[in-house]
Design a protein around this nucleic acid. Structure first.
Length: 310
DNA sequence: TTAAATGTTTAAAT
DNA sequence: CATTTAAACATTTA
């Protein structure tokens, strides 16, 4: 999916738009990946958005209780009643976009869209890839996912840290000091650098695009093992990943197709990319054609001259 | 027609 | 038991 920069961009925009909105209803045709846990639609109806944030690559829509009812604290579950359910704490909606997820919010005068570029982000919604629709008192949020790899989960705020994805998640490269970044990577020793960078338990938010981009900037071959990296190379990788993230966030994400920002403006292509999907194109530094090679089940793109294996 | 795709989990093999 | 690799998930597009 959408990696850290894309999720950051859409999260920030959603945060501005959704704050204070009240949930009216939720529709979905995708029960397999909509995890309600012990909750149900009754628990969300009337709840208001207190903010939208990001953890790794997931989007979290935080809610505050709107309705009140009964909660059985002994059984730690809702009582079987038709009354609205009382929540001992507030709830959150977790959304993982995986490979092909998109989030699109629309109201009378606004449209914001982010995530995977296909289908085009300016395509009308709902469409054939729309899996979940959350209706607010003013506007609707659509979760599209062509390949249905993504998921939605309803969870209590206080259990957020125990959630499977979140509890394994390493810190953001942008929020981490170099020392911690280096130590976390080093723990993988024999691991190959590209694969390790994409390991969400080591560092959060890096996927196939930005591991390629970061390593290109660092002039490090994606197959290098962690133990073979010296201090300078490690630092270059740290900086490389951070730079590519910062640039991508500035540019509004890497979505390769039409991107519509909160003002309805179009634009933004993966024009800043130096390696990802640049196979055969000359390296921006040395003009050697970028090569693509399959490794660890993914395709890596790199410059065979700047990024030597040894 | 076949392969590949902005990701993660799980089963299987080492 | 720890680690690595392959397969699975589901669908579209090049």
């Amino acid at each position: 999916m959408p990696e850290l920069p894309e999720v950051t961009v859409i999260t920030n925009q959603l945060n501005k738009k959704l704050k204070g909105l009240e949930i009216k209803s939720i529709e979905y045709d995708w029960p397999k990946k909509f995890h309600w846990g012990e909750f149900s639609i009754k628990d969300l109806k009337g709840a208001k958005v207190s903010g939208v944030e990001r953890r790794g690559k997931i989007v979290i829509i935080r809610l505050v209780s709107g309705s009140v009812g009964k909660w059985d604290s002994r059984k730690n579950q809702k009582k079987p009643t038709n009354q609205p359910t009382y929540k001992p704490t507030d709830l959150s909606i977790l959304i993982h976009l995986k490979l092909t997820g998109q989030l699109i919010y629309q109201d009378k005068k606004t449209r914001i869209a982010g995530g995977h570029p296909l289908p085009p982000l300016n395509k009308p919604v709902p469409n054939s890839t729309t899996r979940v629709t959350i209706t607010f008192d003013r506007g609707k949020l659509y979760f599209n996912d062509m390949r249905k790899f993504g998921w939605v989960k309803i969870i209590e705020d206080k259990k957020l840290e125990e959630e499977d994805y979140i509890k394994k998640l390493g810190p953001d490269p942008l929020k981490m000091k170099f020392d911690e970044f280096r130590e976390r990577l080093k723990a993988k020793r024999q691991g190959r650098i590209k694969k390790t960078l994409m390991d969400q338990s080591v560092v959060g938010g890096i996927g196939n695009i930005y591991s390629d981009e970061g390593l290109w900037r660092a002039k490090v071959h994606p197959k290098r093992s962690i133990i073979s990296l010296n201090e300078a190379e490690m630092k270059a990788i740290y900086n490389g990943v951070r730079e590519s993230f910062k640039i991508a966030i500035e540019k509004g994400g890497s979505s390769a197709n039409a991107y519509v920002d909160s003002g309805g403006e179009k634009g933004l292509y993966l024009s800043f990319g130096k390696a990802y999907h640049m196979t055969g194109k000359p390296c921006a530094r040395c003009k050697t054609p970028i090569v693509q090679e399959k490794m660890d089940g993914r395709s890596a793109h790199f410059c065979p001259n700047c990024q030597r294996l040894k």
